[in-house]
């Protein structure tokens, strides 16, 4: 699918989810896994827009592209914010997730949901770009 570039603002999230939903539909991925992919893309994009691009000007962009192979749908988010590997972020463990809400720490939940929602989540820095890669494998019956 053609790459789509959008302004790096929270109002672009709905458009990014729609792109992921269309890609999942083209790849024949079921509704439930499509939702998980949309959630994963949404969470990582939210981080990029809110933190990565915190000090960026109005020209900052976030791009999304998708490739469908025989085995998998691979969706990639691209941005030019400072290098940030979400996998290095501390995520809640089972003990944190069992904690009552009044004792919760706020951070890490989004990246936890993102990485749980796809078959593979990867990050690469290429030149000035961050690549966040989401893979949903085909389930051939």
């Amino acid at each position: 699918m053609d790459k789509l570039s959008l302004p790096a603002v929270l109002d672009s999230l709905a458009e990014l989810r729609r792109y992921a939903r269309n890609a999942a539909a083209s790849a024949g991925i079921d509704e439930d896994r499509s939702y998980q992919l949309q959630l994963a893309v949404d969470e990582i994009a939210t981080n990029i827009i809110s933190y990565g691009y915190k000090d960026a000007g109005p020209t900052a962009e976030i791009a999304i592209r998708a490739e469908i192979t025989d085995d998998a749908l691979v969706v990639t988010l691209e941005d030019e914010a400072p290098a940030f590997d979400p996998r290095l972020r501390q995520m809640p463990n089972a003990e944190d997730l069992a904690r009552p809400l009044e004792d919760r720490r706020i951070g890490g939940l989004g990246i936890y949901l993102a990485t749980q929602g796809v078959d593979r989540f990867d990050y690469r820095r290429e030149g000035r770009r961050n690549l966040n890669i989401f893979e949903v494998r085909m389930r051939h019956e």
Partner: peptide, 20 residues
């Protein structure tokens, strides 16, 4: 139809603001 962690954080906020 859709809820991201931003919505979950508001639930945590509600609990912490309103009390246990």
């Amino acid at each position: 139809e859709f809820m991201a962690s931003a919505g979950l954080r508001v639930l945590i906020f509600a609990r912490q603001k309103m009390g246990a």
